[in-house]
Nucleic acid binder design. Structure first.
Lengths: 239, 239
DNA sequence: CGTCACGTTGACTAATTTCAATAACGGTGG
DNA sequence: CCACCGTTATTGAAATTAGTCAACGTGACG
């Protein structure tokens, strides 16, 4: 019944250092291998979970790319983040045993499911796991502070530059180029995340290109002048 | 040496149900009483902690009112939240053993300090505490999603109305009036939190007053038409 | 090869910021 | 107790940013 149970051992996963605590004994690692019970494939456009779904556990992204969004009754929507391999999703569900946002795959993806009960019980046996879970949640809180800073006090150019630099840095940590990336989301999704309209995102991309900072061809972006991008984030006067 | 050790028992604290897990046995409650080691007074304007401070533990607000803010190298600042009695502060420090934001008292305050080591070790003995800590962090993540929605997709009137309603609801849960409040922060601090200038905040207050929704006299706010305020949040077209 | 979703660009509009002047309060010290 | 000062708040007018509406390209995919 447990599908390819041997394949999904975290101890042999090349993303381990992104998802898992680093300093664990061989014995603890063996226990941590029981954390992930199943892998789940999510097709592009499909939800990993939706608002109102019962919370069952957390997900570690094995491959693929997601967005999370919150929505209001009157249909407004705000993208709250984009997630890539090695990142943990589902933290919003813990507080009320129910998810409060939607997680949607922007490309075909695979996730490792970690039942919450198991996380809790394993945390007792493996203190490093408990600390790790706290750190993951704390990191998410700090990340969101950064988004609040972006949304609350930056102008369009700074927001987009920050966004690009952030994506690049995370991709770089995963072995990708520091100077090139393929956007997995539409201009509208970028705009929602950054609190801008899709037109403003498009125009700002064009302006960056005109200024020789980047080259944009649809979703293919090449960084020509990284220092220039960084300068936009740091030196613009803002509001 | 432990200062007034008997006074600071959570089991006898009237804020218990705000800070602490509810379903615990008498025996567990006794253990939880060892969580808070010290009380600390913070004078108005003084920091509870600052960016770069070593992370030592979490704080439960016993009385008083705080703001948290993140700042950039170039001096920009974003208020990330306002905290009142019963709420937990310091979660940002867990991930890197160092605080990433400033917490400042907006009025004389008193907090209960819970050393992080003790939280971790007690979580092993008392599973309800572990769950509770997770829920507190998850709640903070969900709260921040709400702020992102506000900053990313609401216009000035909606932001301010949401802000007022949120404050009122939290104050009401603490036994205060649902229709009246005293703001503990300046227009500038409200503006920073809401991603607006202090002038826009002031003007929007005035507009609400003109429309008969509220009465404002400096920091004293009386809600005249709560339904009207709620309507602004729900029905405005937004962006 | 046509259709549809996505992206770009332009012209105009609206919301919010900026700059500036004035007013009101609250704490401090005479 | 009152006057004064600095801080906080209000309001107006001008400037600016980003949004809205609209038209047109372009690519991907069946």
């Amino acid at each position: 019944m447990p599908p390819h149970a041997l394949q999904i051992a975290c101890s042999h996963c090349n993303l381990r250092e992104l998802c898992m605590p680093v300093d664990v004994t061989a014995q603890d690692m063996e226990r941590l291998d029981t954390l992930v019970t199943t892998r789940r494939r999510v097709r592009r456009g499909a939800p990993l979970y939706s608002r109102g779904d019962r919370f069952t556990g957390l997900y570690a992204i094995r491959s693929g790319f997601f967005k999370t969004r919150v929505t209001t009754e009157d249909g407004r929507e705000q993208v709250t983040g984009f997630q890539m391999a090695g990142e943990i999703m589902g933290l919003d569900g813990i507080v009320a045993d129910e998810h409060t946002c939607d997680a949607l795959a922007l490309e075909d993806a695979e996730v490792c499911e970690m039942p919450y009960q198991r996380i809790e019980s394993l945390s007792h046996e493996v203190p490093a796991l408990q600390t790790h879970v706290h750190k993951i949640m704390s990191r998410e809180i700090v990340r969101e502070h950064g988004v609040m800073l972006l949304l609350g006090s930056m102008r369009a150019e700074e927001r987009l530059a920050s966004f690009l630099l952030n994506l690049l840095q995370r991709l770089h940590a995963r072995g990708f180029s520091e100077a090139e990336l393929v956007l997995r989301m539409t201009r509208e999704e970028i705009g929602s995340y950054l609190g801008l309209t899709l037109e403003t995102v498009s125009r700002t991309f064009s302006r960056f290109a005109d200024e020789g900072l980047i080259e944009v061809k649809h979703r293919q972006v090449r960084i020509v002048n990284g220092a220039g991008l960084r300068a936009i984030v740091n030196t613009t006067v803002g509001r």
